[in-house]
């Protein structure tokens, strides 16, 4: 792993807070989170339900704004950006994989994977479909390119979602319970795929999971309780 002092971290959080509501009903969900992810890290975020994992992931993914603190993506401070700036940074640097697959049913697998490129470039071109095709080959769905999203099994949909998350070659992939809806076998496959991308492309991953077994296969385990990080362990990942 690269020397953490000299390289820019992919992600840096300084005293991040998040509250919902205002006045009487205001309640703080995140109480000052500090976190740093280096390039190529493969980290699990664990914790009991309601501890704030999804809230934190949404902040990191620039889908939401923190109530306090600073958030850096690839060294860039994000607090001053307007919606357009956040949207652009999100599109270029961050890939999402959600629990509920979240493909767009009106489009084929190939089109879904090409979608981030289409959104960024404004018009379709041959190059983006070639790239989407390669990504689908890599996630083992070479045969399913022209299937509509809802003609795929859950595990297949999640593979498409992973391919899509990689389309823009992001620095950071955020996955919120990517295997939560899958059976053990498919979950293992999907997890292995994430790990493989991480090794091959050196992409940074932050994966929320309730599955202790899968968390143990990550390089780092960050544990949250009630809106605080209570443990952060690096370890030699259990071999598959």
């Amino acid at each position: 792993m690269a020397d953490p002092v000299t390289t820019t971290p992919v992600l840096q959080l300084k005293n991040i807070r998040k509250s919902y509501g205002s006045g009487e009903t205001e309640s703080e969900i995140l109480h000052g989170i500090d976190l740093r992810l280096e390039r190529g890290e493969f980290a699990a975020l664990i914790g009991p339900s309601g501890s704030g994992k999804s809230t934190l992931l949404n902040l990191i993914g620039l889908l939401d704004r923190p109530s306090g603190g600073q958030l850096f993506i690839d060294g860039q401070e994000t607090g001053q950006l307007d919606d357009t700036g956040l949207t652009r940074l999100r599109g270029q640097r961050i890939g999402f994989v959600f629990q509920h697959h979240h493909l767009i049913p009106a489009f084929t697998a190939l089109e879904n994977v090409a979608m981030p490129l289409l959104v960024a470039r404004g018009r379709p071109d041959a190059d983006m479909f070639a790239q989407a095709g390669r990504l689908l080959d890599q996630v083992g769905l070479a045969e399913r390119k022209q299937n509509l999203a809802n003609q795929l099994s859950g595990g297949q949909q999640q593979r498409v979602a992973i391919a899509r998350a990689l389309a823009m070659s992001p620095s950071l992939v955020l996955a919120d319970e990517p295997t939560g809806n899958l059976d053990t076998h498919s979950a293992d496959d999907v997890f292995a795929l994430l790990r493989e991308v991480n090794t091959r492309l050196n992409t940074t991953f932050l994966i929320v999971t309730h599955d202790q077994r899968l968390a143990a296969r990550c390089d780092r385990i960050i544990e949250m309780v009630d809106g605080n990080i209570v443990a952060d362990r690096r370890h030699q990942a259990a071999t598959n």
Binding site: G61, T87, G91, L103, I104
Partner: peptide
């Protein structure tokens, strides 16, 4: 999802 993938308002 489209917004998460970088689609603007």
């Amino acid at each position: 999802i489209l917004r998460a993938m970088g689609a603007s308002q």
